[in-house]
Nucleic acid binder design. Structure first.
Lengths: 257, 257
DNA sequence: CAGAATACTAAACATACGTTCAGTATCGAG
DNA sequence: CTCGATACTGAACGTATGTTTAGTATTCTG
């Protein structure tokens, strides 16, 4: 119940939208000191509750209790449950953007094919991945915008890698990036099933990256050499793309955006 | 509001669990005759409402109204909202199993890599795909069991295809089948995003399979030749699977089941 | 047909929820 | 210090919701 007593002190303090002026100078003296604003604490509690029960399933009183405040205060700060949800969406999106930027700035690393690699969260802080896994299916504009950004990033990233000879060329730059991104996000959304089937939990940060292996192994195999033999691939293509289609397109298909 | 006035008369009548004895001989004369039992009508209405608003978001009165009955009757037939949800889960799972069996019995067709190809529903009947897209993320035992079956089917199917030389061999029979199945399901769960990004709606049956092309195209490309160049693949593998692993590349290797 | 069981409705019930409100404490500005 | 604004609480309000209940129609069984 009580948040981590101490430990991650001055950690993470870059985004911090408008959660308030001062970190709540231990006003009531009630709980162990927490460097977050009350508003931020409420927001984090909401993220945790929404992640666990879904937005419709969670309720303000539980969120308030988790944050150690009254239900009225939640409304006072966020106007309504919907406002709270919007704030959570924006916060999560902002954190992800920031961490992606940090990761990009840092040593080459491997953004690889996990668009959410940036938010493999430490055990501290709210469960961003689980929150996203929930809200990804509940259609909010903020999350939609975030997904669009992830795909756009993937398009750019894959173009770079392709130019560097690290990725095979594609006839569908936008389509391939979108499909790979959505597949990755889909695996996160279905993390419960993945855990049950392969014993890998994508919604928790791995102590040791090796525990991801039952998932990463097949993924690398699929992305490495494909799964269809040449003739099967040709067969499907003939069936779907129209028999004589012969693949004219190589450019960007600008359906959207 | 009113269901299809007539048309799909003696259609679909194989599963029909225990929705009751006779198709409600137009008891009240209130609504145009429907060949479904009242219980079945309630269940289908529930599937539609759950699909639209999620299980937590939907409410019994709306479901009852959609089915043209009172809220009390829903409880009378299903005991509780949870019971109703369980019945829906079971029904959807049963329909999918049945259609998969039919599809398997029919001409070779292509179960391909869409584990849900069997339920590309006609415009009649409840929105099974959307329902599944919702419940897949809400963790019910019935849905979990269904997913397990889909994966098991995929393992068997891919083994057959591999033997027939239609699929590349894999080191991870279970893992590859699980990953491909979950990716496909994930794309369904994220159908809103896929629609927005590529203009393809996986939750509706396509009048013309060609409309799926912006999705199928990249998918076939990825599954056909992969996306990583050989050295990139080797690099990732070295990083993840431990440096010296060496990749025999054509042999079977049964790590997992 | 009699009588029991089932299908069904409308209303009532209890509770859980989002939100409002009145009041209190705390803070910053002058 | 004074005053206004903000942070915050606890209780109240109104409503929506899952469920119960009492009662009526309908069907099934013998």
């Amino acid at each position: 119940m009580t948040p981590h007593p101490d430990g991650g002190r001055a950690a993470r303090r870059t985004h911090e939208a408008d959660v308030g002026p001062c970190p709540s100078a231990d006003r009531t003296g009630a709980r162990p000191h927490d460097d977050r604003t009350t508003k931020a604490r409420i927001r984090d509690a909401a993220i945790a509750c929404f992640a666990q029960d879904g937005v419709a399933g969670a309720n303000l009183r539980a969120i308030a209790a988790e944050a150690g405040v009254s239900a009225g205060l939640v409304i006072h700060h966020f106007g309504s449950k919907d406002g709270l949800r919007a704030a959570c969406d924006e916060h999560v999106a902002a954190v992800i953007r920031e961490r992606k930027r940090e990761a990009a700035a840092g040593a080459g690393a491997d953004p690889g094919f996990d668009p959410l690699a940036a938010i493999r969260e430490g055990s501290t802080g709210p469960p961003l991945t689980r929150y996203l896994a929930r809200t990804l299916t509940e259609g909010s504009p903020q999350v939609a915008a975030l997904v669009d950004e992830l795909v756009a990033d993937a398009v750019a990233y894959q173009a770079e890698m392709e130019k560097a000879g690290l990725l095979r060329p594609t006839k569908y730059p936008q389509g391939r990036a979108a499909v790979l991104t959505l597949w990755s996000l889909g695996a996160v959304v279905l993390h419960d099933h993945l855990k049950r089937l392969l014993g890998v939990d994508l919604s928790a940060q791995p102590a040791d990256p090796a525990v991801l292996l039952p998932y990463i192994g097949p993924v690398l195999e699929i992305l490495g050499k494909g799964v269809l033999t040449k003739k099967t691939a040709r067969g499907y293509e003939a069936a779907f793309l129209g028999a004589g289609e012969q693949e004219s397109e190589d450019g960007e298909r600008s359906d959207r955006t």
